[in-house]
């Protein structure tokens, strides 16, 4: 029996492994994935990596330039902000906010989107009409304005940001899942399950879902970059996480007043946003190429 089981495991993994191999061959995408992983590590181990306490204000070091400029020193490698807080440490702690909110929003939105998309695509009828119209209506609102409105209504806070962004974000996976479900539900193995007496729940979750998961995962990673930008935008506008919590968007906003004389206050958190979002985008496109054969020529 053991021989058989080993065979089966090898076969089950072979497709995944082949896709992974294709992904690793794409050096740019693989490099970007490493950058993303580094950011995640940075977020997790922030207290051990950060050179200073990100909340410790010290007005003696107010607007201190980065280390390579005149007046810079190693104690504050990327300089300090208007309250004399270490910019590098705040960027490292800020990664926690960006990545946590990005992941949480995508998790909530994808779960809701999968359930709604499966119901709309498989059950059709009035369920589809209600869900699809709701999706159309939500798509009609500009994303950021919708989120700003919700934040203004609910008030700031970590949980509220996640809710405000997930409120609209779920329509993206929902549309993908609905489309894939419409195609998959017509396949004979779904009909076979119905002929055997399987319930709609079984068919949606056990027969259809495993077969449409790859495009959903790809879309989720692409969208995560958008959500990180949106969180930064909300924080920039003062509607996101509240000070003194370090958030990249809020840091960019803090530096606006001194942008001409102390450019580093705004620039470094901006670069952090750019790097993380770019890395996620490039890595997710590599994932898409490797895992979704329809996109490969």
């Amino acid at each position: 029996m053991s021989v058989i089981e080993t065979n089966a495991t090898v076969a089950a993994e072979s497709l995944f492994r082949r896709n992974m191999a294709a992904f690793m061959e794409n050096r740019l995408a693989f490099g970007s994935a490493i950058v993303v992983v580094l950011f995640v590590f940075m977020a997790i181990f922030a207290p051990w990596i950060a050179p200073n306490d990100p909340y410790n204000t010290n007005l003696f070091f107010r607007l201190q330039p980065p280390v390579w400029m005149d007046g810079g020193e190693w104690a504050y490698p990327l300089g300090a902000d208007a309250l004399g807080r270490c910019i590098l440490s705040r960027i490292i702690y800020g990664a926690r906010v960006s990545i946590f909110i990005g992941a949480a929003v995508i998790l909530v939105a994808t779960t809701v989107g999968i359930l709604a998309g499966l119901a709309a695509g498989y059950l059709r009828g009035w369920v589809d009409v209600v869900i699809s119209r709701l999706v159309d209506i939500l798509l009609g609102f500009p994303y950021l304005i919708f989120a700003i409105g919700l934040m203004a209504m609910m008030g700031p806070g970590l949980g509220n940001i996640i809710l405000a962004l997930a409120y609209k974000e779920w329509v993206i996976p929902c549309r993908v899942v609905r489309g894939e479900t419409l195609v998959t539900r017509e396949l004979e193995y779904v009909e076979a399950a119905r002929a055997l007496g399987a319930s709609s729940k079984h068919i949606m979750l056990r027969e259809i879902l495993p077969n449409i998961l790859s495009p959903v995962i790809v879309v989720a990673t692409i969208r995560m970059a958008h959500v990180i930008i949106l969180e930064a935008s909300l924080s920039f506008l003062g509607l996101g996480v509240q000070p003194p919590t370090a958030s990249w968007g809020a840091m960019v906003a803090d530096g606006r007043a001194f942008i001409l004389e102390s450019w580093w206050v705004s620039t470094f958190p901006g670069v952090a946003i750019l790097l993380l979002v770019l890395a996620i985008n490039v890595a997710s496109q590599g994932l898409r190429d490797a895992f979704d054969p329809r996109f490969t020529e």
């Binding site: 089966a8 396949l187 004979e188 193995y189 009909e191 076979a192 399950a193 002929a195 055997l196 056990r206 027969e207 495993p210 077969n211």
Partner: peptide, 16 residues
């Protein structure tokens, strides 16, 4: 019960 025409489409590729 029913036996289908296309033996490729009638079995779920993700299940043993």
């Amino acid at each position: 019960q029913i036996i289908f025409q296309d033996p490729y489409a009638s079995l779920n590729p993700r299940r043993t």
